[in-house]
Structures are given as structure tokens and as C-alpha cells.
Nucleic acid binder design. Sequence first.
DNA 1: AAACTATACGAACGGTCGTATTATTAGTTC
DNA 2: GAACTAATAATACGACCGTTCGTATAGTTT
Lengths: 215, 215
Amino acid sequence: MDLGSGLVEKVDGRLARGDQTRRAVLRRAVDIASVDGLEGLSIGRLATELGISKSGLFAHFGSKEELQLATSRAARRIYADNVVVPAYEVEPGLGRVWALSEHWLDYSRSRVFPGGCFFQKVSHEFSARPGAVHDYLASVHSEWMEIVRTAIAEAVERGELAGDPAQLAFDLNAYYEAANLASILHDDVSGYDRARESVRTRLAAAVVPGSPVPW
Amino acid sequence: MDLGSGLVEKVDGRLARGDQTRRAVLRRAVDIASVDGLEGLSIGRLATELGISKSGLFAHFGSKEELQLATSRAARRIYADNVVVPAYEVEPGLGRVWALSEHWLDYSRSRVFPGGCFFQKVSHEFSARPGAVHDYLASVHSEWMEIVRTAIAEAVERGELAGDPAQLAFDLNAYYEAANLASILHDDVSGYDRARESVRTRLAAAVVPGSPVPW
DNA sequence: AAACTATACGAACGGTCGTATTATTAGTTC
DNA sequence: GAACTAATAATACGACCGTTCGTATAGTTT
């Protein structure tokens, strides 16, 4: 997963003033959007909460859609930092698949975004609408599913797992999403234990006998 | 599942004029909300699309929140008619569990609501917000999970399935939801086959040996 | 026929939305 | 310190939001 190295910095590493603002805006924007969605994220509200002017904020993005896209890109970055990067520190194979699951559930449970998984929220919001935001969110979804599928495929290649990687990736991701929704909707974290158990059972059923398991 | 027999009719079975309007409004409202959410469902837009006045429409509900609640109740009715009722025509046991899965996936695939499952959409929209709409959607979610869990528990009692009904219900529901999102986000129905396969495999692993299977 | 109720209408309210234009400030460079 | 540029603010616009009000029309009841 390319994290995008486009940090706009001055030569000495300090951020230009405009980028500080932009960064602060996006930090707040992803939090708001995870609760109220990308449409509920209004420019006026965002400016008020940050104590800056609406027009000044608007000048950074040029349009509402660009703000939504920038917010989604910022969220992807945070998502990558909290889920993908830590899992990639584990050796490829079953261990990494397990790490992906654990980090995903932790990422949702610990409310890295206050409204739960940012992409769950806004992907549903834009799922049936045309436009650049929909397309970007669909691409992030595909990218994520490919990451899970690849991790599983590596475990299969190593002889630790058996079965169709795409099918297994579908199942694991389904557990994550279901736990995320249930926990937010009912303000109850028990869904994460359910999901963890589902992941463990599903993986156990696909483990090649004799392989060591990470749980 | 109580479908609510509160049909407001005149003695001869004809609907009063106001209820005809109300019914037409809600029929359109659930479709709009399944695409653009319950916040994207604006009173002005709804009135324009139906060719009636904004104020006349508004008088039927009294507030935006009441319209959202009425829309959600109408959607629940449609959901029950398309998923729960047909499945309940099958004898309790593994067959009914399978029927629930098949009808759910059909309900989503056939776009009973143009934006996919109404409750998937709006549950995410209101998952992190307080209010009566959130509470109602949470109760519908619980009600649905209980329906699935009970159907599974009946199959366990009959000796057709083994395992924790709540855990199994969590898994099956997760497959439904994941298929729904993937199919809408990517405009691709292949997720339904994935989900069907996941359901079949998951149930097969829980079937008590010797029991006949419905697939 | 008269009285009453249910239903729908048009106009307007204050507020917020996204957006555009213009002015003012702050930072950097010579 | 002056000149220039980048960043932020001020102000305003038209559109739409949910909501309220007063009124007209249709249906029902007496």
C-alpha cells in the first residue's frame, strides 16, 4: 500500500503555513465525516469548529467535492498507518493475516475515528451515487480487499492455508464490517469478540494441518 | 415479526384520501432514502417529485424527524414482506435458515430498494448520532438479528445444526451485508455468489452429520 | 342546506448551504 | 525596510433547507 509521500514541506522540514492549516482542517474533517458523513461535513461548521473563516477554509480546496476527496485521502492515510503498516511488520503468511484482523478490529474498537471506520461510513453514503468521491471510495475498497486477499494468498503459497484466497478475504472482511456496525449502532463492544471468534474459527478451518497458528 | 396491522382504512376497505397521499409519499421516500439517505431525503425534493406542495406534504408528518421515522417504518414493512414472510413459509429448521439467506440476498440483488438494502444504508448514516431515528434503527437491527438467531436455534433444537446460534447468526448476517455493499459500490452482482457460497460453507460446517441439506 | 373536518395550497420566515469577489494580513526575498 | 507573494478574512450572493401561517377546496356529517 503506497502511503503517498506527497508531504509538502519546506527544505528544512517545517511545514508552510498553509499546509499547517490544511492539515488541521483535514484532521478535524475526517472525525466529523466519520460521524455525520461527507455530506454532513459542511464548510461553515468545519470553519466554526476550527475558529477560522469559512472563506479562508474554502480557498484551500476550491470546492466541496475537493474537500470530500481530500478528506477521504487523509482518512486512507490514517487507515493505512493504523491497520496496514503494523500488519506488514509481521512476516508474510498466516501470521500477517491474523495481524491484519487484529489491527483492523483494534482500529475500529479504539475509535481512531470517533464514528467508527471512516470508510464503512462514507462508502455506504456514496455507494449509490455517481461522482468522483464514489469512484475514489470504490477504489479504496478494492485496494483494501486486494491487500487482504494477497496476504491470504501468501499464506496459501507457504502451505499454511488452503482454499480460495478471494473467498476467505470476503469472509474476513465481512466479519470486520459487521462488528464495526453493531458496535457503533448499539454502543457495545461485544461484537468485536464475536468477530474475533469468527475470524479464528474461519482461519482454523482453512489451516493446513500441522501449521503453527498465531492465536 | 409483527408486521403491524395498522392499516388505516374506511369500513368498506377504501383508503381515505389523506392516507393515499401518505402512502404514495412513503413509497417514494423509501426509494430516495435508500440512495441518498434519510438526510438526503429533503421535503422539498420529495414534494417536487410527487407533484404536490411542500407544505401539504409536511402537514402529514409534522417534522422532518417524523417523516424519517415513518419512512423507516414503511421500509421495515417492505423488508418483512420480502425477506421474513417468505422464509417463514418454510418449516422451522435448517430449511428456514437457508431460506432466510436466499431471500435476503434476493431482496438485495433485485433492488427492492434502488440503493440496495435500506437498513444498511440508513443504519450507517445514523449509527453515530443520537435521536429517535437512531434508536428505531438500532431496534430494527436487534429485531432482525434475533429473527436469524431464533431460526438457527430452532435448527439446533431439531438436531440439524450444532454450535452457538448467536455466533452463527453474526456470521451469516455479515455475509449478507458485505455482499450488499460490494455489489452497490462496484455495480457488480458477483458478491452475491460469494456470499451464497460463504453461507453454504458456513452452514455445512455446522450441519450435524446425516441431516439433509436444502441446497 | 348548513356546519364541520380533512386535506392541500401558496407565500413567506429565518437559517444554512456552497461559492465568488474583494480586501487585508502575514511571510519571504531582495 | 520595501516589494512581492501566499494565506486568511470579510462580505455578499442565490439556492435550498425545515417550518409556520393563513386560506381555499373537497368530503362528510348533521
